[in-house]
Write a protein that binds this DNA or RNA. Sequence first.
RNA 1: GCGCUCGUAGCUCAGGUGGAUAGAGCGUUGGCCUCCGGAGCCAAAGGCCACAGGUUCGAGUCCUGUCGAGCGCGCCA
Length: 609
Amino acid sequence: MDLKAQLKAAVERAAADLGAPVDAAIQETPANKPGDYGTPAAFQIAKALGQNPAQVAAGLAERVQLPEGISRVEAAGPFLNFFVDVGAFVRGVVEKPFEMPPLGGKVVIEHTSVNPNKELHVGHLRNVVLGDSMARIFRAAGHTVEVQNYIDDTGRQAAESLFAESHYQRVWDGVQKYDHWMGEGYVRLNADPAKPSLEEGISAVMHRLEAGELRGEVEKVVKAHLATCFRLGARYDLLNWESDVVGSGFLTQAMTILEGSRYTTHPTEGKYAGAFVMDVSEFMPGLEEPNVVLLRSDGTAMYAAKDIGYQFWKFGLFEGMRFKPFLTDPEGHTVWTSAPGGQPDLERRFGHAQEVINVIDSRQDHPQTVVRSALGVAGEGEKKERSVHLSYAFVTLEGQTISGRRGIAVSADDAMDEAENRALKVLAEINPDLAARADAHEIARRIGIGAIRFAMLKAEPTRKIDFRWEQALALNGDTAPYVQYAAVRAASILRRAQEAGHATDGTGADWDALADLDLGLAKMVARLPEVVAQSVRVHSPHVVAQYALDLATAFNAWFNAKDRAGKPATNVLQSPAGLREARLALVARLRRAFEETLDLIGIEVPAAM
RNA sequence: GCGCUCGUAGCUCAGGUGGAUAGAGCGUUGGCCUCCGGAGCCAAAGGCCACAGGUUCGAGUCCUGUCGAGCGCGCCA
């Protein structure tokens, strides 16, 4: 049990003794307030007992049993504040690895799901980075995570790009990135005044796609997409193809389940005559039109019905899909794909989620709520509650709406190229020796990709992002390079200590020599598990990104701290023996915290900067 | 019209289940290398937390309303 949990229990016991059981909140005391952790519990107790909060706090202070590691308690007016034993606390933090109480349950996260007809643009980056970071965070929190990427291989967009290829007799030179090349045909077709007369040909391609005849063509685009996503650091477990979702009978099975619901009907008259309709008003109050058409009166399926079938499958409501390995990712893990000729999933390896997170932009809020409601309609109330739409605001480009069709976009590949180039340029300016090293490109890669990822997730997903080079690729301020720099600095201290023969593992440490400055840093490190828990709770990685900044700020402030005489107050290597080893151990733990935290959002620490 | 999301410093954003004097970055101004890395640190200036009510011992946070912004509302995908 960690310290805060122990404090909470202690306060609650004391409150119970006073005759007023409470749910005590333990929080860090604000700067300039006495103590390290405190609770406003006296307010609640005073109210229950009809007494003065300050007196209650004083009473609690006398009564509360201090857990180990707490040196004293003090009532500050109505607040009850605890002072930690500095040496014991820091030692505890240093010796305790990052770990989370294991959470059970499998989580399926769907992200990316980019139409396979054109290269990714900067707007897609947000989706990929959000989804990939959530996957990392949920894994760290102890969940089993399966990342799925939905391939819409029967859609109009894929058909148009493939049609353009033959219509314009385009030939790929084998050099240009394949998805970019396909995208050019798509843009050309949509700028072609003759396009309205080409519908027949496009339609024919759609039929061939549905028949699975062009799977190989689509796969080439998908592989090009994955190259982009891998470069960003994203990883996948399974590709689900729309044609397979349909071909596996998910639609039929889902409709069979919904047939049994009292919320679905086959109206025989009125505007929905002949259709299969779902009434979602109980799950989506306030709608003008509570009915959702699932099957048209001609028997064909609405898109929503396919989505519902897929979502039902993710939760394991039925089986029927076949799978085979698709390719190997940069870490050597196999990415699987649905496939007509694959093997049945006898071990129930895929799907069967306890929770499903769909990363889709906020324009899909309404359709996603319909999909979610369908679980309620099917009588799966618990699964409905654990069906999460991670909704984010669509990215604009210099104030303009991004449009792949009209070619108004900056590609994800170009953005990453530019980010790495800028990082390399800055490196050459401020650290020419480093820029001449053999690993300069790897350093620039980590900085550039880190900067982009961080820019895409440091704010809440509901925030609009207007992509501008200067801020997306900024290397100062609230950015990944700021955090990376702090981590590199920490490593630099450790390296020099090792060169000088000092222990960095706490051997020979005099913990009691540590000061309040050091304590502040240790308290920041200790927050990581709570941060992860909160990120999981709110389904957003921005919490982790903000924490990474806090960690770096705390370290930089500590690193530069001056005493009253204006001399460095925390110089590790020049600290007296004992204190030096304690501080080195703290820096070593902090360095790990940087790596652990940045890894949660898919950012790597460079060897040097 | 209805629904969803949002409104915090000049700009971009943080702000655990409501708790102590609302915090960062960018920009502006002024400082800091006799000291482990200046992509850094310190300081100053900058706030009716959109507005009005309400709940509460306590509201940036919860509720209602108003104003403003974005998005969505098809037997399309």
